[in-house]
Design a protein around this nucleic acid. Sequence first.
DNA 1: CCTTGTCATGTAAGCGCTTACATGAAAATC
DNA 2: GATTTTCATGTAAGCGCTTACATGACAAGG
Lengths: 377, 377
Amino acid sequence: MKILSHRGICVKYQNTMVVKKNPSAHAIRTRRRRTGGVASQPTVGDIARIAGVSTATVSRALNRPETVSPQLRDRVGRVVKELGYLPSGAAKALASNRSFTIGAVVPTLNNAIFSACIAAFESRLSDAGYTLLITVSNYDHSHETQQVRRLLERGVDGMMVVGLDHADATYVTLERANAAYVTIWGYDENSPVPCVGFDNAAAAETVVDHLFALGHRRLAMVAGITRDNDRATARLAGVKRAMQRHNLTMDPGLFMEKPYTHQCGRDAFADLMSLSEPPTAIICGNDVLAMGVMFEANLRGIAIPGEVSITGYDNLPITRHLNPGLTTIDLPSEAIGHAAADVLIANQAEGHPIKSRLFDAPLLVRGTTGPCPGGRR
Amino acid sequence: MKILSHRGICVKYQNTMVVKKNPSAHAIRTRRRRTGGVASQPTVGDIARIAGVSTATVSRALNRPETVSPQLRDRVGRVVKELGYLPSGAAKALASNRSFTIGAVVPTLNNAIFSACIAAFESRLSDAGYTLLITVSNYDHSHETQQVRRLLERGVDGMMVVGLDHADATYVTLERANAAYVTIWGYDENSPVPCVGFDNAAAAETVVDHLFALGHRRLAMVAGITRDNDRATARLAGVKRAMQRHNLTMDPGLFMEKPYTHQCGRDAFADLMSLSEPPTAIICGNDVLAMGVMFEANLRGIAIPGEVSITGYDNLPITRHLNPGLTTIDLPSEAIGHAAADVLIANQAEGHPIKSRLFDAPLLVRGTTGPCPGGRR
DNA sequence: CCTTGTCATGTAAGCGCTTACATGAAAATC
DNA sequence: GATTTTCATGTAAGCGCTTACATGACAAGG
């Protein structure tokens, strides 16, 4: 822990003041330097001059060392190190039309499943020399359009957006800008846009099938908010479709939409249990809701799965440690993050087209689901 | 869900091929356009020509509308909308020396406490028109240096790094680049670098005090890995300091460092309980470890806090729903994220110097701590 | 009516890189 | 030995913006 003097800011501050108060030619010219006026940062020109070569050679030595003679390469390298030279990304991006920057728009960062995906995404990008620009949409399509636009302005080389369903303007903007992008989480084989994800509805169906096989007939669903969220919508649709397939009646009172919070899961459970005829199994739109449901059941001394079965969706790392372990959909969040990064990088590096990719999202049966109490009804 | 044709990538791909195979002057010139050769994006020049004004006026109309007559402002605005013009961030950054981009280096994204902070940080940045560049260090100081360098190359207007303890090179790079930066999480009033955080050690001391007051004398600590992690180090130090203050003996066998995972918490508990004389209270370096400890205790039927008290550190949203609720340090992660963003933005916008800021991190007593079993020893 | 501001707009010079093309020396070919 | 080819390096033209300064119209002041 060695700490150097921290004066940069002050100087910068004072400099700004000077400029404001006394816009002399000199002050203005000074201000334009990259660092705000003080010790200006070295540029390729400086490196070139000191190393006694042209700027083109410096650029080549730095970006395609193999095209430069070893002596010059070393000479340039030495000067670069000596001066602590950092290339200007803006200038590079402007001149080369590549920013080595990739954008992502996620609905939220406060859900471990997205964080995990983003972490995987970032990790791959970082290894390939890219930096991640991240923005959050808060599950709001019109806000998302703004964020996409902003990322495009920042000159990202590619972009990842969550979900297939977006505002028209988002797609228009993306296509107009001729952007390289990939959607994640959802998968639709007929999708005209590339998607790296899984079939949310199909996975939800397997949950119902599992519960049906266990004898459950009275199923409830605590879905996420479906507005502007195609994943939540698809999961709900999957559950309904499977129930229809099994000829199960769907009591509207057993279907609800809740924000993805533990508290909402608890509230949902309380509501469901206060019904005259409570469900024997509760399908949750994600693990956070499922955990909330479990917590409330626990508090009320209602046995899981003895009295009620619970299912989640996501397979958050914590869910396997719960007691009993949560039966859930094992969502390949990391694989998706990696694949999304790979496809974007390959597109930039080798010009590979961005192709869709389907992942499995298998049902993971653990302890929260069991036979329907009282046998089949 | 309206989906447009998705042809951009292919064209770009083909175009790259063309260029590679036939580097005619035309193909090359074409390739240089921002979009890769197809329909090129409009520029200020295009807007200016169509609106019948100069590029300077376009720039002013877009960035400082009040300096332009209403008619021209409208005229420019209309053309901008019509052409779907998106300014080039690279060109803006190069010309104005401002990127409207802020960087962050975090140890991991796979810990809800950081995600929450980042979410708060991003939210404030976004409101102010900034975009967040995020990189992760994986708790590795030398990797962190690389990431800082990369962010600087990308031309961030400011940067946030987690913790006060960093590699020399990190600080050297930061100062040399004259960067506006702030460290978060830790706070040290004597720090020469600005820090927005709380006193990790002091908070850890309050945990010990609380346990001591409950009669516990045999304390164990499951700390995080302290290497390259000043927060974990400070927490451990705080615990030791408080124990010394209370004249408690510190059995080395009761102190261990573990990665921040649930499983490690479980393992730690198993180890601790297999000791001939197990602790009556276990202080955990963070909530994830604490939850792991709780899960294992639960599995073994060991009563909390009847037989053993547990404390966490972070106050993750889930911890209040646990049964019993986890006694932990209420870490102001969102406030820190907001404050870090605010200070960086104010520095850019108004030239305010970046000042340190101290937050409270109070002990939150919930159900996992109780009187020492068997009274005081 | 002339001067002096004031203000909206234009002109054009960069910002710091990349890279097409030019150049010239050395190597290869005839 | 004259030629062509190859290759490392240099020259200089942008990339798409911002902005200092120039300009000219018009208003205000004398």
